[in-house]
Amino acid sequence: MLGPAAATLSLGRTARLAAPPSHLPDKFPLFPPTRCPSSSLLLPSTVATNGNVICKPLAVGMGMSPRHSVRTAVAVEPNQLSDDPSSKEQAKTYYFLVANAKFMLDEEEHFKEQLYERLRNFGERNREQDFWLVIEPKFLDKFPNITKRLKRPAVALVSTDGPWISFHKTVSLSIYGTIHYPPCLLRSERRFMKLRLDRVLSESYEANSLEEALNSTPVKLEFEKPQKWTAPYPKYEFGWWEPFLAPGSGKPKA
């Protein structure tokens, strides 16, 4: 019907359309200058004794992509920017979203897809994983205002990547504080995952080690089968979240 010679022409055209503008992702600064003080790039490479990297310098030679380094640096609170090399036990800020386990692990199936997508992306770009799921996290004890509004068992998504999770409280409050925005705007501190999940509570805390940050209380999860299942496919398998649990913890004893 149509000659194969013509096919090459079309491919040229379509290829142009389909070709990803590969220069795009790296062309732009990772954060707009207003929010990313350039000083964060000058931070000393501070590595806590427990092996937690507090802040990496922008060194490609380390085998880390610049993207990774900057992102890690951003998670450091402004008050940590003092270049005191002696403070090796510096705390790191962890941002989290929390809701009941049924919502996080059973109902919101797109959440599973999103976490796997992110894990795949980190793998492809040799980025160190900086997000985890914590079932019944111990750090919740510090947040009575959250726990009193939470169905249990609870599950938290924890990450050192503040913008991905929620908000830089310190920075934002000081900005909003000076301009006197109404409380409704103070509440609208959303970030990407909060925007997606909506029905979650968000906060941040500091911890000295990953282990401390992701400490959890062992609990057995059970989800009732949905009353009516309209989908022409089965649910994601129970336990899909295991790759995201804290390293070496929380896995059910098989």
Binding site: R35, P163, W164, F192
Partner: peptide, 12 residues
């Protein structure tokens, strides 16, 4: 800030 967080996701 919302948009900046989203921009990060899209740049990824």
């Amino acid at each position: 800030s919302d948009f900046e967080a989203l921009l990060q996701e899209f740049k990824t």
